[in-house]
Write a protein that binds this DNA or RNA. Sequence first.
DNA 1: CTCATCCGTAAGTAATAACTTACCTTCCGC
DNA 2: GCGGAAGGTAAGTTATTACTTACGGATGAG
Lengths: 110, 110
Amino acid sequence: MARSSAALNGFAALGDPTRRKIFELVAEEPSAVVDLARVLPVSRPAVSQHLRVLKHAGLVIESAEGTRRIYRLDPRGIGAMRDWLDAHWASALGAFKTFVDEQADEEDAE
Amino acid sequence: MARSSAALNGFAALGDPTRRKIFELVAEEPSAVVDLARVLPVSRPAVSQHLRVLKHAGLVIESAEGTRRIYRLDPRGIGAMRDWLDAHWASALGAFKTFVDEQADEEDAE
DNA sequence: CTCATCCGTAAGTAATAACTTACCTTCCGC
DNA sequence: GCGGAAGGTAAGTTATTACTTACGGATGAG
């Protein structure tokens, strides 16, 4: 259950635009907090707070390098969200196709 | 751009627990608003408002059936989120592996 | 033509969350 | 040791947002 609730928190974490931007920056290149704050339109503490949320959601990991904390993507959190979405996507695709076919039949009948 | 921003809104839409529950109920079986409200711990208007958000995010579609509006999953919105996540997942997995290998090397060196 | 059901929207409220500044600790170069 | 850079946390403010009740419009049954 810890795994699935972490995956679910991932959606809330990536729901915020600033956090999504941080996620994309870290995806491009593992970065320290100060480097992210330089690029973003928010203060450094705000970046720290966002990173805490992303970390808690299992989307990033942290590693010390001198005084700098380097943040990287954690593929496990992303993978959990991906799996959850994949399962629903597959069943949705089947149901959607059935629905569209039925609609077409009804229109033929008119 | 309309496509990608819709996909991104999807994360915010699924970030809310009630909305995620609605999403799962609709995934199990296409439902009318009143049926969803019967199961959920919130009022019917609240369900309507959540469905509007999900619809705007491209995650569900609506079809009239008498006075009832039947909501179904829209695989396109889910697919867009899935694609976005997939791309980041793949690159994250590569970067993560490299990072773990480097860590192992440094520990060997000590 | 009523009457009931289904549903969306408006308006107001209370909780949440994203941001700021201020402060303190930790680590490196000199 | 000392000064400076990096960053997590606290406290306070403001904007979102998830919810409620109240209302009005549309559809189907009798």
